[in-house]
Simulated assay, not measured.
Amino acid sequence: MFSLEKLDKHIAECRKYVEAGTEKQSVLDMCVALRHDLVNATEDDWAAYNELTDHLPSENDDPALIILKGQLLIER
Rank of each mutant, 00 (worst) to 15 (best):
V39P: 00
D61P: 04
A64N: 12
H36A: 11
R15P: 00
L52W: 03
L56T: 09
K24V: 09
D54M: 13
T22P: 01
V27I: 11
C31R: 13
E51A: 09
I67R: 14
E19D: 10
A20M: 10
D37Q: 12
D44G: 07
D61Q: 13
I11F: 03
A64W: 12
R35W: 01
V27F: 09
I11N: 01
P63K: 12
S26Q: 13
K24Y: 10
N50S: 10
A41I: 05
L56S: 04
K24Q: 13
D44H: 07
R35Q: 14
N40E: 12
N60L: 06
H10A: 08
P57I: 08
E13P: 01
P57L: 04
K16W: 01
A47D: 08
H10W: 09
E23A: 15
E5P: 03
S26E: 15
D45A: 07
L56C: 07
A20F: 05
V39C: 01
H36W: 03
C31T: 04
Y49K: 07
E23K: 15
V32L: 11
L65S: 09
D8S: 00
D61H: 09
N50F: 07
D61M: 13
I11P: 04
D8H: 00
D29K: 13
E5D: 12
V27C: 02
T53K: 11
S58Y: 10
R15Q: 08
R35N: 05
D45E: 09
P63L: 14
E51C: 05
L38W: 03
N60H: 15
D44I: 04
E13L: 03
N60P: 00
N60G: 10
R15M: 02
V18L: 04
V32T: 05
E19F: 04
H36L: 08
W46N: 02
H10N: 08
E59Q: 10
D8Q: 00
H55A: 12
K24L: 11
Y17N: 08
N40V: 10
M30C: 03
E19K: 11
L38C: 11
D29V: 06
S26A: 15
D8P: 00
I66R: 15
D45L: 09
L52S: 03
P63D: 12
T42R: 06
C31W: 12
Y49R: 07
L52T: 08
A41S: 12
D29G: 12
L34K: 03
L28H: 05
A64G: 04
S26F: 12
R35E: 01
E59M: 11
K6W: 01
L28G: 02
D62E: 14
E5W: 06
D29P: 06
Q25V: 14
A64K: 15
A48H: 08
C14I: 11
N50A: 06
M30T: 11
E51V: 05
I67T: 10
Q25M: 06
L56V: 14
K24N: 11
N40W: 03
L52G: 02
D8T: 00
E19Y: 04
A48D: 08
Y17L: 13
A47E: 11
D37W: 02
V18E: 05
D45S: 11
V27H: 13
V27T: 15
E43G: 08
K9V: 00
Y49M: 13
D62F: 10
C31F: 14
L4I: 09
L34S: 06
